[in-house]
């Protein structure tokens, strides 16, 4: 069995994570840039159009001058798929024993990336508010998968939009209508706070802790990629239309462009429950991935 295993050094993991953090914070994903551009073409209000122009200029300046797109370079969130036939070694060349710690390797990458990339360290103790100084610990969701590779997906999740996110446990009878009502009310109440135009990630089903995880993972799908579940595509389109009808607009100052996309992920749930998590993402939807 051991012969089928591949060995990867923890240092290679840390280096890849560091590069991922820097890259994602400087460059807006193409799908997001395109969605912003299309929204700009449709937007008619002078104030709203002016803000969308500023965001386009910002992305250009960030890339050209190697400056982070946003000063909030986020809490580092990772979705990691670790091949079960991959061993992590402490030594640079696989020496030093195959007992490398994936969590430590990722956190070391965050430490290096946030230092080398001049990214903001935004992590602190919840009570003393003392900054940890290196943006660790990251939030790491690890999944064991077949194979010998390691896939690391990173998102820089800002605090402003995360603060506007909510979890609720609806009654099953409330159904899709209840879900729409809750989401619309949330987006309306959030107003300009989460930096609209936003992207709305919905986790529907699962339980109290799974729903928000689904919502966060939903946010990683590209805006131009259809939902893999065909029955959810119409729901996403319907809700997107309804959210944009709210007129919240860019930065909450009115306009057609409140939301760039609604992304839904579902899981089966208890017969008594309809868990719903609304994870709001700002327009600076920074994420990226690496396969090792």
């Amino acid at each position: 069995m051991m012969n089928n295993c591949r060995t990867l050094s923890v240092n290679a993991v840390s280096e890849a994570v560091a590069a991922l953090c820097v890259e994602a914070n400087l460059h807006l994903p193409k799908d997001v840039a395109t969605a912003l551009e299309l929204a700009r073409q449709r937007e008619t209000g002078a104030l709203a159009s002016g803000i969308l122009d500023q965001l386009a200029a910002n992305a250009q300046i960030a890339a050209a001058q190697c400056l982070p797109l946003c000063q909030d370079t986020g809490l580092a969130v990772f979705f990691v798929e670790l091949g079960r036939d991959l061993r992590l070694a402490n030594g640079a060349d696989g020496a030093g024993g195959a007992d490398g710690d994936i969590y430590a390797a990722i956190n070391e990458g965050v430490r290096r990336g946030y230092a080398e990339g001049f990214l903001r360290k935004s992590v602190c103790d919840p009570f003393s508010r003392a900054n940890t100084g290196d943006n660790t610990p990251a939030v790491i969701h690890l999944r064991l998968v077949p194979g010998r590779s390691l896939r690391i997906v990173y998102m820089a999740k800002g605090g402003g939009s995360e603060n506007m996110s909510r979890v609720t446990m609806l009654a099953p009878a409330e159904g899709w209508e209840g879900i729409k009502r809750f989401v619309l009310e949330r987006v309306r109440e959030a107003g300009g706070n989460p930096c609209p135009p936003i992207i709305v990630g919905l986790g529907i089903g699962g339980n109290f802790e799974l729903a928000p995880l689904l919502a966060k993972e939903a946010l990683l799908r590209c805006l131009d990629e259809p939902n893999p579940q065909p029955d959810l595509r119409d729901k996403e389109a319907e809700l997107l239309e309804l959210i944009n009808d709210l007129g919240v607009g860019p930065m909450g100052l009115g306009g057609r462009t409140t939301c760039l996309g609604v992304l839904i992920k579902t899981a089966p749930c208890h017969i008594a429950s309809l868990p719903l998590a609304v994870n709001i993402q700002c327009h600076s939807a920074r994420h990226g991935e690496v396969l090792l």
Binding site: A59, L69, G160, M251
Partner: peptide
């Protein structure tokens, strides 16, 4: 005053 959220590189200039 409101500044544009997420226009941080632009504002840096």
């Amino acid at each position: 005053f409101a500044a544009t959220g997420g226009a941080a590189a632009l504002l840096a200039s």
